[in-house]
């Protein structure tokens, strides 16, 4: 047992703080974490305070009698700034985005009370990829969470997606000879094609299925219904 904001949380050996909280039905904000895959620890939205230190809950092992603080004013502010950094560093045109309303980045931003970017937009130039017959890649929206990479490697056993580059040039790459998604064996049936928390990996057909007001996060905030995608049926999280 450990304490999360004063609530007792049971855990199994090897659980991270976030895994244990997730199983117990408590929400700690996150973007790069998914219960089905290995933790990444890159988005830092799941930062919590433990023993006077701020750590990512998805990589920090749960320990008995640990006092973990997540819902503090200071951490809420830090998370707000982190998500503002994510918005500022990409090119996020929510008004025209296929996944607006169903997007975890946007939903978490709503939930954290974000109204603006705070930081000047970086307006990066990023390479798009429309080479695949059914999938489109819009790197403008990529948050470098590597969920596609992990899903492709761990579940699809294909290892289609990987992160390349360094620093601000970090980008999604594809394991094919010419570097294009269309030359990989990626398929619409892959888990990786249905894991992106934002609108970076998109089906080419059948977008904008829901009208505004009836989308995943239009009425119910992410802390209530969890991180999931409309095509996952929303069963993976509380």
């Amino acid at each position: 047992m450990f304490q999360l904001d004063g609530n007792p949380i049971a855990f199994s050996k090897g659980d991270s703080i976030l895994q244990a909280a997730h199983k117990a039905g408590y929400y700690i904000p996150h973007l790069c974490f998914h219960p089905d895959f290995k933790a990444h620890g890159s988005c830092r939205l799941c930062v919590v305070d433990v023993k006077g230190k701020t750590v990512s809950a998805c990589t920090q092992p749960a320990e008995d009698k640990l006092e973990v603080y997540s819902d503090t004013a200071e951490l809420r502010q830090s998370r707000l700034r982190l998500i503002q950094l994510l918005f500022a560093e990409g090119n996020h045109y929510c008004p025209s985005c296929e996944v607006s309303g169903n997007c975890q980045l946007q939903a978490l931003a709503y939930d954290l009370g974000m109204t603006h970017y705070h930081y000047d937009p970086f307006s990066p130039l990023r390479q798009q990829d429309g080479s695949h017959s059914q999938l489109f890649i819009d790197q403008d929206r990529c948050i470098q969470c590597d969920l596609c990479g992990r899903a492709s490697q761990e579940q699809d056993l294909k290892s289609v997606y990987l992160l390349a580059g360094r620093g601000q040039d970090t980008h999604l790459a594809f394991r094919s000879h010419n570097g294009q998604l269309g030359s990989t064996n990626a398929s619409m049936d892959d888990r990786a094609a249905h894991i992106c928390p934002v609108g970076c990996i998109l089906p080419k057909a059948g977008n904008y299925p829901d009208i505004a007001g009836e989308r995943l996060y239009d009425k119910i905030p992410i802390h209530t219904q969890g991180n999931h995608r409309r095509d996952e049926g929303g069963q993976d999280e509380p």
Partner: peptide
């Protein structure tokens, strides 16, 4: 609105 806050659609010319 979006354009005042982050440049919005007109900012697509920044590419």
């Amino acid at each position: 609105g979006a354009c005042a806050i982050n440049g919005g659609v007109p900012a697509m010319r920044n590419h």
